[in-house]
Amino acid sequence: MAEKHSYLSQEWCTEAEKRLRAELTPEKMKFLSSSVAYVYVDCPDGKDKYLFFKCENGEITEVSVGHGTPPDAEFRITGPYELFARLTKGEIKSQRALMSGKLKLKGSMVKALKLASVADRISKVLGTVPAVY
């Protein structure tokens, strides 16, 4: 059985990057160049964390996690840790989370519409990373 990593830990991030690079080809990523920062509010340690992705021409070039302010990104999605965790586990869909107003998106909504399917693919891959939440 695969080793479980603490969600949003450095080890989890390394495994997530490995799986994303393996499973999401540039074709599947629609040769996209963009970046997104997920800001997790009220994490179990009482602090805020971020998960940051960057891709260029469909290649994932950066996946990072950290505390505090995330790197500048084309999109920023802010919400409670618990909700993001449920999203990653596949217990709730991103559309429902966004439409409920519990997640806040910042960035061009028009561009976000075009990227929705890619975001779902990323989310599915993240859900395969064995994790302790």
């Binding site: 919400g79 989370a97 966004l98 439409m99 107003g101 997640l103 998106l105 909504m109 028009v110 976000a112």
Partner: peptide, 14 residues
Amino acid sequence: EDHVLGYAPMGGMD
């Protein structure tokens, strides 16, 4: 397109 943005019934996007 960077100066024509869309709003939507989503968190942060209303």
